[in-house]
Nucleic acid binder design. Sequence first.
RNA 1: GGAGAGAUGGCCGAGUGGUCGAAGGCGCACGCCUGGAAAGUGUGUAUACGCCAAAAGCGUAUCAUGGGUUCGAAUCCCAUUCUCUCCGCCA
Length: 423
Amino acid sequence: MLELSYIRENTAEVAERLAIKNIDATASLQQIIDLDAKRREAQKLLDDNLAESNNIAREVGNLMKAGKASDASELKLRVADLKAQAKELAENLDNITSEQTGLLVLLPNVPHASVPRGKTPEDNLIVNSEGVIPALPANAVPHWDLASKYDIIDFELGNKVTGAGFPFYKGKGARLQRALINFFLDNAIEAGYREIQPPLVVNEASGYGTGQLPDKDGQMYFCQIDKLYLIPTAEVPVTNIYRDEIVKASAFPIRNVAYSNCFRREAGSYGKDVRGLNRLHQFDKVEIVNIQHPDHSYETLDEMVAYVSTLLRKLELPFRVLKLCGGDMSFTSALTYDFEVYSAAQQKWLEVSSVSNFESFQANRMKLRFKDENGKTRLCHTLNGSALALPRIVAALLENNQTDEGISIPAALAKYTGFDLIN
RNA sequence: GGAGAGAUGGCCGAGUGGUCGAAGGCGCACGCCUGGAAAGUGUGUAUACGCCAAAAGCGUAUCAUGGGUUCGAAUCCCAUUCUCUCCGCCA
């Protein structure tokens, strides 16, 4: 959620920047500002009314104490009158506030000044490209064929037991998963992150705090009976640790890393790029989350990008880094870098990480603040990134490393798998 | 799932109708003391919104949440949520 004071003072700029996300918010912004004037007026009226009631109550108390109870009856009538008014005033204020909040909540984050204009993924800016795209043998096959050839990932079994998008990992496939998780976690710990093991379901307030609600309601699995959501990413529970907190500035940057299962309904995405591991309803991901001073959040974003790059280098995967254009950015983000690895048999770039600075957008919703040097309470900046999501990494590893003898495992990972060949 | 107890500031904890945003302690910050530290000692220490150009200041709200009684509620009543204890079930 954008800060009201920021909108009030920079209305034109906010509208301009939202246009980069291809959103015409002019009318909505004007409405929010109009409502703000109304809201303040309504609050003033209510506050004055309540102040008068409080004064009278004090007077009555004094009269009672002085044994002049009879003199109080007129004052009591006055309060009854005020009270009736107060009820209406409070209702009015509530209505205005919730209308305003309703509009604010639907407004996406404003993109950073460096975000390129554009509408589709083709407009994203390639800022880095590394590694060598392997020349595969003529008989190379995509990962779903390799998965069944070596019996390491079983999609049909997933269909039977659960449904599409919930595969079983078997034997060396399962061990590869476990190895990747440990590899990612160990690297993050070495980079200064604290490991967290979060709950996989969260309440409504948490979904709202990180911005999944109300924007992406319907993309999360929901347990109706307990009103709990299955997390689409560890970002949700890990960031919400700090909901309603005032952290110490000396604690910056606050770095947490978490491995979790991620659950996504992916409603509406059927039929496109869903083959094999490309898009699943349940997958594994290691997520890094940073909370930082507003003055340093972009340095931290760069650090995160550099860190994720080291992981892909160690895995010896060809990758590129994209700065997302306005049209391809998420609702909550101010600046996002996507990482894609090249999956050689599919001859496709697959997104494996998304590293974003949310600035104060999430913090405002969550009331995540800190005390600055002058003792003033301000909103923190939050950032997160995948480091990394497993399925597409596995897809690329299988496809790029296929040989006649089997699938070779990169050295850095073989330490974790305990084997260097899947055959 | 059944029975009972409870929810107060960063933490512990007092407060059962009036001047309570809330005693006291701990913690934290700053000062004094000290060669330095500890101990001791003094002062300060919630958040949000509104008024004000701003600071100071003032107003309003907040003692789990929502409603009610009352001139007045942390305190009384109702509902909800959550926590703890015991029993049952169970990895």
